[in-house]
Design a protein around this nucleic acid. Structure first.
Lengths: 111, 111
DNA sequence: GGAATCATTCGACGAACGTCGAACGTTGGA
DNA sequence: TCCAACGTTCGACGTTCGTCGAATGATTCC
């Protein structure tokens, strides 16, 4: 069957700073963002190796998606996710980069 | 009279990204950061005109302080707060600026 | 068609959060 | 000395959050 049920995503103008900061302010979700940043191309939920159950992982992806941080694409039974780099940069210049770089620094420091 | 009770603040190396993002991910706390950014010099809690009770305001200042976002200085019965700009920039380069700028844009847009 | 795969949704649970008013401790001024 | 001002702390409250397993839905493969 064909279900053209595309996932819903907020428009760039509807991004909310508090919502984005809350979305990024969780260890698991920050890990997801880091994975999507490091990976080349779209990544499916089950390929991320998250330290939570699949339902929890799905929940976190939903939070990130509704905040505008990630974009989900349906492909069969899978959802491939990517970072909305350009959109985030347009709405909150420098924010994603600073978060990713800060996170990389922290990771290197605690190694 | 004597006042050896200095407020405690985390060292720059102990800043935690998730904690900072969570601290910034609240409307009232973001308002406090905006006020401290706009104001020249230290500002006391009761001068901020926060839309919450004094106990709630005190709580939010504590969250920001323990995350390393603000620095509190005791002066008599008052606590004067400032942004830890330099420390935040050293630990999370560009983060505070991007949050403040994004916030300013959002505020101008919803005017 | 049937089974396996992938992900979402649905309760449920405890923990954490934002909020308040009241009480308290300090300090400074009349 | 007494009182007003400022802020913190304490309990309480309702809400939201992160988590899980089970159930459900959708799709692909055999």
């Amino acid at each position: 069957m064909h279900h053209d049920g595309e996932l819903t995503h907020p428009a760039v103008d509807d991004f909310d700073l508090v919502e984005v900061l809350q979305a990024l302010g969780d260890p698991v979700r920050l890990q997801i963002v880091r994975i999507l940043d490091a990976g080349a191309g779209a990544i499916a939920c089950h390929e991320m190796g998250l330290p939570v159950s699949k339902s929890t992982g799905s929940h976190h992806l939903k939070v990130l998606r509704e905040a505008g941080v990630v974009k989900g694409k349906i492909d069969g039974t899978r959802r491939y996710y990517t970072l909305r780099r350009t959109d985030l940069e347009a709405r909150f210049p420098g924010l994603l980069d600073s978060v990713l770089h800060a996170d990389a620094v922290a990771t290197a420091r605690n190694r």
